[in-house]
């Protein structure tokens, strides 16, 4: 028999881990598309912040989480297009332009917040969905079936992304462009068009990631609301070796370890919080070592701008 105290801790860790994996999953899956097509978008964090603000502001005005989500997606698309313009058309150095987009998003979201909202307020975001029967199950109910719409959407996105990347012509094009843009170009695939598409898609998903924080998980906005989640999402794509399901596992691992250390602190099990907070990062490095060992097929043209006839 399991000790009821341990059981309740376990439920808390799993439920909280699943819930807080949401924003990582949206951002990381979006980033996966970009990276497989050969573009490293380090600006995810900036897109998330502006989108989080936009969603928050719209919900504050209208009380409609759906409209807020829409606003976030629009912001994500616009900033995704801008990223594509920078890295595809202008062939800007991706790591650095990403940091620029991040700084821009960090500043702009806070600036808009200061001008339009002034002080922190809560909003009514996506409510938790009560599924008859399932939500009331013991143990499984609280872990899996008491979340809001965006949590489920994030997990539903994973198989969808896998399908698109592996079973559709578009997915094939994306991988071809990331693996060997010259060859793809000779076959008549427009490298620029594919990369614009993946970055715009990635931008939209980053936008949803931001919205999931401001109008579903936290229901607030504050300066630097994301505090580094976008960067972690970028790293988790490598962690997951560009495969949606493994990326999802990385996201879950990350949020679970956080949930674990918080639960331990809350339950007065003494652990040095700094060491615990360090664990996900160390685990990611370890995972990167294993990923490299297994000779994962990596997008060969990642971060390399495509120039015809080079």
């Amino acid at each position: 028999m399991i000790d009821p105290f341990l059981l309740s801790m376990l439920i808390t860790i799993l439920a909280s881990g699943i819930r807080f994996a949401t924003s990582y999953i949206f951002a990381a899956i979006g980033e996966t598309f970009g990276q497989i097509s050969g573009v490293l978008n380090l600006g995810v964090e900036g897109i998330m912040l502006v989108a989080a603000y936009a969603a928050y502001f719209v919900v504050l005005q209208t009380n409609e989480p759906g409209l807020g989500l829409l606003a976030a997606i629009l912001v994500g698309i616009v900033m995704g297009l801008a990223t594509a313009f920078l890295s595809v058309t202008l062939k800007a150095e991706q790591g650095i332009s990403g940091i620029g987009v991040y700084l821009f998003g960090l500043g702009l979201s806070d600036l808009l917040f200061r001008v339009t909202v002034k002080s922190v307020q809560t909003v009514k975001g996506f409510p938790n969905i009560h599924i008859p029967a399932l939500s009331d199950l013991p143990i499984l109910g609280p872990i899996f079936f008491q979340h809001n719409l965006l949590v489920y959407a994030a997990f539903a996105l994973v198989p969808l992304a896998w399908f698109v990347l592996n079973k559709t012509t578009f997915g094939l094009q994306v991988r071809a462009v990331g693996q060997n843009p010259e060859a793809a170009d000779t076959l008549g695939i427009s490298v620029a068009r594919v990369r614009y598409t993946t970055l715009t898609l990635g931008g939209a998903l980053s936008g949803i990631a931001g919205a999931s924080l401001s109008i579903a998980l936290l229901n607030i906005f504050q300066q630097n609301l994301t505090s580094g989640q976008g960067f972690i999402a970028v790293a988790l794509v490598y962690f997951g070796a560009w495969q949606p399901f493994r990326v999802m596992l990385g996201c879950l691992l990350f949020s679970m370890v956080n949930a674990l250390q918080l639960t331990m602190q809350v339950n007065r099990i003494p652990i040095p919080a700094d060491i615990a907070l360090m664990m996900p990062y160390i685990l990611t490095i370890v995972a990167l070592i294993f990923a490299a060992r297994q000779l994962v097929i990596q997008p060969a043209a990642l971060t390399k701008p495509f120039e015809r006839g080079e």
Partner: peptide, 25 residues
Amino acid sequence: VSKTFTQSFSDAALMSQAAQTMVSG
């Protein structure tokens, strides 16, 4: 009484997660 320190002055998400953990407890 359970006390939790998140080691961050600005990470609202971590504070939120800590609070949820406490409420579930």
